[in-house]
Design a protein around this nucleic acid. Structure first.
Lengths: 124, 124
DNA sequence: CTGGATCCCCTAGGATACTG
DNA sequence: CAGTATCCTAGGGGATCCAG
């Protein structure tokens, strides 16, 4: 994996790791789509939309690896795989919603800041 | 910039943007180092440690662009530039701390999950 | 249906050197 | 001091084909 430079404050290591997981393109979508119910792979893929199998698989593996998502295989034909949030994963929902809530509440403020920034740039 | 695929749920756009900003390698460090006091560029660079001028500049620009950080230039010789959190930036501290708090609290749980995952892998 | 294997592009981000 | 300019590389992530 990522070696994470050791000159970094060691207390920040878990933070950066989490942000790396959570900051990946699809993880938040996946988690939010699993908030209310367990879902199968293709269900998840359809309900999210626009994600590749590869990316979705990778995202799920990473979440599973960190103990946030549980993967249960039913070896039938055709095979069936269900994904669900673990208890640990559920505890992340609060902090995560705090952040996403902020993003939504301040969407217009951020957008305004961006416009100002762009304008000041072309002025220069 | 990043075009962000339009098949994505539009409500998630601000979320992904925030995560992209906050998920970049140094932004959280920068914000946390600005929590208590405004700092000059080289102060910031020294106190964070291990960050390149380029990366630090890029991070600060992005934060400034989103209206989270204020950049004030004092045209003297030598030049002096101070960075501080904006009021908007300060409102992000709460949600951000919620997330970093989670990361620290659950560091061992995540680490344990990782070990289990690795072990199950070599078992297969 | 679930996902592994490949190819390929593009961007984040490190190293280094230069400037007002 | 506070950047900009250039070069370079590892890795994320899309597309596509294949397999149990």
């Amino acid at each position: 994996m990522k070696p994470l430079p050791q000159h970094e404050d060691p207390r920040c290591l878990p933070v950066r790791r989490l942000l790396q997981t959570v900051g990946s393109k699809w993880s938040v979508l996946v988690v939010s789509h699993l908030e209310n119910e367990a879902k199968r792979f293709s269900e998840l893929k359809r309900s999210i939309g626009g994600v590749t199998q590869k990316s979705l698989t990778a995202t799920l593996r990473e979440l599973e690896r960190d103990g946030l998502v549980d993967r249960s295989v039913t070896p039938s034909i055709p095979p069936r795989v269900d994904y669900a949030l673990t208890p640990l994963g559920r505890t992340l929902l609060g902090p995560l919603n705090a952040l996403t809530g902020w993003a939504i509440e301040n969407e217009t403020a951020v957008a305004a800041a961006r416009e100002r920034f762009e304008k000041d740039n072309e002025a220069a």
